[in-house]
Computed example of a mutant assay.
Amino acid sequence: MDSPHGASVTAENFGLKGPRGWAFRGLGVDAGPGSLVAIEGPSGSGRTCLLLALTGRMRPTEGHAKVGGLRLPRKMAAVRRIAALGPVPGVSELDPAFTVAEHLRERALLQRRFDGSLRALLRPRAERVATAQERIDAALDAAGLDPATLPKAGRTSVRDLERLEALRLSIALALIGSPRLLAVDDTDLKLSDAERAEAWQLLRSIADNGTTVLAVCSQAPEDAITLRTDSAGSTDDAVGADGTTAETAETAETATGETTTEEGTADAFAETGRA
């Protein structure tokens, strides 16, 4: 029997510290392949740092985690190969001057160049183009984005997209590489209630089709496995969709008197890098 496509995500006592404090600390989760995992908390509470740490883009300070059976931080490069970033400000943002079609062509080209086998690279050009278009079409369908409905179809500039359309495009770009884990930052930022519901429905459908989803948000849906990074509280729990507690999250003052701060989050970005 084939193993599930999605990557399991587990963590215990997971933390990341910058020079002036903890970006996050004491977090734990146990999510199987194809799970929808919401990272919930206010801005500045370490949400994005946690997202990047679990996708192999930031080095944790304490605890351990496994993504698809790959241990962090030892296998960060391997985790990056199976985890794709959707929109993450300052890391994987859309270029506002590019059109939708240009973004899609560029991503398909990069995917073929860096992830394709030698045999695939030596195939006739027409066959390579057809394969790339199939990937693009499948990703757009999974992301629920039809370029034909946009004001100028594929020639529509990113700057002219609505917020939800831009989110769908970013997700489509990430899905072109058929990742086992999809990571999305600021999922519900600047969305109306109806648009927020659409966004979660989209991510839920991607998870239901087998790809594990990590999504940063200010308010998680009830059916998601939720990791809370609320620096304003004393403690919070990582709660599964069935209401079970996965692990206690120490996000306020710790036993040693150290605190999780917005400055700590910023310092963690600067010190660990995002490559």
Rank of each mutant, 00 (worst) to 15 (best):
A132D: 06
A148C: 14
G116M: 06
V100Y: 11
G69Y: 09
L104T: 14
G116P: 04
S218P: 00
G154V: 01
A220N: 09
R25F: 13
A132M: 06
L203W: 00
A142R: 12
R125F: 10
L36I: 14
L51Q: 07
T229M: 05
R20A: 12
A266T: 01
F114N: 00
R105M: 14
M58P: 07
V29Y: 09
L227P: 00
P89C: 11
G18C: 11
A246N: 03
G63H: 07
D237V: 05
T261I: 06
D2L: 10
W22M: 12
R59Q: 11
R274K: 01
D223P: 03
L182K: 07
G21R: 12
K17F: 07
A138I: 08
I136Q: 06
A77R: 14
A166F: 02
P19D: 15
R20Q: 13
L110N: 03
A238G: 04
G90H: 11
E271H: 02
T235E: 03
L72D: 02
F98G: 11
V100A: 13
C49E: 00
A268R: 08
R74W: 10
I225N: 05
M76N: 07
C49K: 05
T48L: 11
E165I: 04
E62C: 11
D115Y: 00
K17A: 11
D115E: 07
G210A: 08
G32F: 11
L191H: 00
T272Y: 04
A197T: 03
R74H: 13
A23M: 14
T149S: 13
A101T: 15
S218Q: 15
T55M: 07
Q133D: 15
I82D: 04
D146I: 14
V29R: 09
E165Q: 08
A143G: 14
T256M: 05
L203E: 02
R155Q: 12
T61Q: 06
S8T: 14
S218W: 10
A232E: 10
T55I: 04
T149F: 06
I136T: 12
G264P: 00
R180H: 09
D146H: 15
L52R: 02
R228C: 09
E93Y: 08
G26Y: 13
A101W: 15
T61C: 08
D230E: 05
T61G: 07
P42S: 12
T187Q: 03
A246P: 01
A31V: 14
G210E: 07
G44K: 12
A139V: 08
F114K: 03
D267L: 00
D236Q: 05
S170K: 01
L181V: 10
T10Q: 15
G26I: 15
K66G: 01
R71K: 13
S45W: 11
A83W: 05
L150D: 01
G177E: 01
D236P: 04
R57A: 06
A207L: 03
A252R: 08
D137H: 14
D95G: 09
R105I: 14
A101L: 15
P124G: 09
L122G: 07
A126L: 11
A143R: 09
G56C: 06
E165V: 03
G26H: 12
R180C: 05
T226I: 05
L173V: 02
Q133A: 15
A220S: 13
T254W: 08
A31Q: 10
V91T: 14
T99A: 12
I225F: 03
A166P: 00
C49Y: 02
V129G: 01
A199E: 03
L121G: 04
T156R: 00
R180N: 00
R113A: 08
